[in-house]
Write a protein that binds this DNA or RNA. Structure first.
Lengths: 152, 152
DNA sequence: CTAATTTATATGCGTATGCATGTAATAACA
DNA sequence: TGTTATTACATGCATACGCATATAAATTAG
């Protein structure tokens, strides 16, 4: 505990807090996955469209996209094939690195993302909007942001 | 906006906050799933042992257990079979309701949960302990608790 | 400049998953 | 009480998943 050393939160508080976040996430995800907007596309698949929509330049390498998802690289590779077969995204070889692919939404993919996103936003707001005050939501965002930074 | 109506957080703040929580969870889970303690048992399987360990009476119906997990009931049913085959949990018919099962840990299952849990706690603390102050962790726990209540 | 290493994606293969549905037991109702 | 509806769990089947590994391209080492 000398000099510039940071203090570390206690084991119990760290674990209890993570456990609470995790269980909250499970509870919310169970509700979300039952929502009608995810009948045509699974949440995992939608998440790919969502990430492509908002990634810089609207293009992303498979590996970079994978960073934001829980599935393995081979699973994402095959999911991309399926989404491509459905006409929702395109795979292009990266001219600067012929190993890599640049993934992007097709017009159809963008339209579907927007349609599902609209419904999803509405339903999420209905589900969670009253859970806490706006200030508390902001604080939760700030804290989860710190958590994310810590593991990046 | 009359009388006792609660104010609802704005759409944007609600969604951004949820998005932030979700991404933080993904980032942490990616790290966790790579940890050595989950070589013998997947996180999902461990979570079943964990839930059984801490549920009231150390026994739980399959349906009740399922509430705390993201997998479907049929998947849990088969996972239980596998965990039973490994000698980690037992399935007993509920004497009060012959449709239901009472699941509980075997001695071996308890021992394994404790062993994995010990390592997991250590690693999680190393991973997250410095992410924020103890007060902030407590606040995160409080807020995620509210979130969970809201969807219960 | 060639050889070894690393990085990005794909594929074989066994297994886990979800959906729809089945079976059995309890609860509700008329 | 007999009938219907509901609840708890299991199973058939098609598909998605993860792990190990292959392939191909870029980077590094010697």
């Amino acid at each position: 505990m000398t000099g510039t050393s940071k203090t570390t939160a206690s084991l119990k508080v760290t674990l209890d807090s993570w456990e609470s976040l995790f269980r909250a996430q499970v509870a919310v995800m169970r509700k979300i996955s039952a929502m009608e907007e995810f009948n045509s596309l699974s949440m995992r698949e939608y998440d790919v469209l969502f990430n492509l929509r908002f990634c810089p330049g609207g293009r992303s390498r498979l590996v970079d996209l994978n960073q934001n998802l829980l599935i393995s690289q081979p699973s994402l590779s095959r999911m991309v094939t399926r989404l491509e077969d459905k006409g929702l995204i395109t795979r292009e070889s990266d001219p600067d690195d012929h190993r890599a692919l640049l993934l992007s939404l097709t017009e159809k993919g963008l339209a579907l993302q927007q349609e599902i996103g609209r419904q999803h936003a509405k339903h999420l707001h209905e589900l969670l909007g009253d859970a806490m005050s706006e200030e508390e939501f902001r604080e939760m965002q700030r804290l989860t942001g710190k958590l994310r930074e810590a593991v990046a």
